[in-house]
């Protein structure tokens, strides 16, 4: 089977990115999964066992001091060298900021073809076929790369399953990075607070709040309902813009796309750009005081009413049932 490279991103604190497991699972559908790791010396070698347990049969390890100080260049250089050394049939990367940048540079360097935001991949003969969910799930598109190396960015949380664990062979690569070609990382800041809530991406239940909450303090209501359901918390762009929650909570066209079992929209009108990020949810519940709000067009259960009255009652009812 041909090699399929995965860019295994490593966080500034030296852990494997949450995107790695599903990338390796996707790679296993196409060939022999090889993890390409670009990190500071000592960091990557500590991760090989974990990469093996996630399915990497080989780890192509580029350890360099430049990893924490050169922006996206180290990953691009490591991948370029891995492509030369291992002649893969495809390269899979996360749709993250770093993943996209490495994909972009690699595509230019290898004269390869890039398909992005795949929600699934499969092999068809020697072709790599990627599935995409376009315009908020309104269309399903399949695409492939012709005439060059297939470079695919994969939507986080979309590809399910796991690859069989392996004991990876480690290849130490000598990658020397010319820092003058890239931007510099000056510092890493404000690491996100730990939370016991599920991550928005991949959560099976999501409760989102919109401008209808009216204030940062009132957004508590969304969190209370989320906690009673064990759900992740999301928001509309208007709620993010108003400063109720950080940008990472944004669901929609320019935020994250979620496909949970249950999506509850509180005080969200249901603008088309918001719907683009949640309309593939299995069950949608909406509470809005405006009976004409477009969110009701796609809600399985809609309540026309005031969130400040209904949500506390709902939390109580859910807690009563849990007992």
């Amino acid at each position: 089977m041909s090699n399929v490279l995965v860019l295994a991103e490593v966080t500034p604190t030296g852990e494997l990115s949450a995107t790695v497991p599903s990338l390796l699972a996707a790679a296993a559908k196409l060939g022999t999964p090889v993890a390409v790791v670009a990190t500071a010396p000592g960091v990557g070698s500590a991760l090989t066992e974990q990469l093996g347990s996630l399915g990497a049969q080989k780890v192509y390890l580029a350890e360099t001091d430049a990893a924490g100080s050169v922006l996206s260049g180290v990953a691009a250089d490591a991948l370029t060298s891995a492509v030369e050394a291992l002649q893969p049939s495809a390269v899979l990367l996360a749709g993250s900021i770093d993943g996209r940048e490495a994909a972009a540079r690699l595509a230019v360097r290898t004269n390869g073809g890039l398909v992005h935001d795949a929600v699934d991949v499969r092999a068809d003969g020697d072709k790599v076929v990627a599935t995409h969910s376009v315009f908020g799930g309104a269309y399903t598109v399949e695409s492939t790369v012709e005439g060059g190396l297939a470079i695919v960015t994969v939507r986080h949380g979309a590809v399910e399953g796991t690859a069989d664990a392996a004991t990876p062979e480690v290849v130490n690569a000598d990658v020397s990075v010319d820092a003058s070609k890239y931007a510099a990382i000056d510092s890493f800041n404000n690491v996100k607070a730990e939370t016991t809530r599920p991550e928005l991406l991949g959560a099976s239940k999501v409760v989102s709040g919109g401008r209808g909450l009216g204030s940062k303090e009132a957004f508590d209501l969304v969190e209370k309902l989320a906690d009673s359901l064990g759900a992740a918390v999301g928001a509309s762009r208007a709620a993010v813009d108003a400063g109720y929650v950080p940008q990472s909570y944004q669901v929609g066209q320019t935020g994250v796309s979620v496909s949970p079992q249950l999506y509850i929209a509180l005080g969200i009108s249901g603008a088309i750009q918001h719907r683009a990020g949640m309309q593939t949810a299995k069950t949608i519940v909406a509470i809005n005081k405006d009976g004409d709000a477009p969110i009701f067009e796609i809600a399985d259960f809609g309540i026309v009413g005031d969130i400040f009255t209904i949500v506390p009652q709902l939390v109580e009812a859910i807690e009563a049932r849990a007992k």
Binding site: A107, T110, N111, G112, G113, L114, V115, V129, G137, A138, Y139, T140, V141, E142, S143, T144, V145, E146, G147, G148, L149, A150, I151, Q279, I284, G291, F296, E297, I298, A299, D300, F301, G302, I303, V304, G305, D306, T309, I310, V311, Q313, L314, E316, A317
Partner: peptide, 28 residues
């Protein structure tokens, strides 16, 4: 170089509205 090529495009059926109630105190 390599090009990305669309193989197929399918439209998903649009979502439809389900039940909608006006809160009379029992909605929750």
């Amino acid at each position: 170089g390599g090009r990305s090529v669309v193989l197929s495009t399918q439209e998903r059926p649009a979502r439809t509205a389900g039940k909608k109630i006006v809160d009379d105190g029992s909605a929750a």
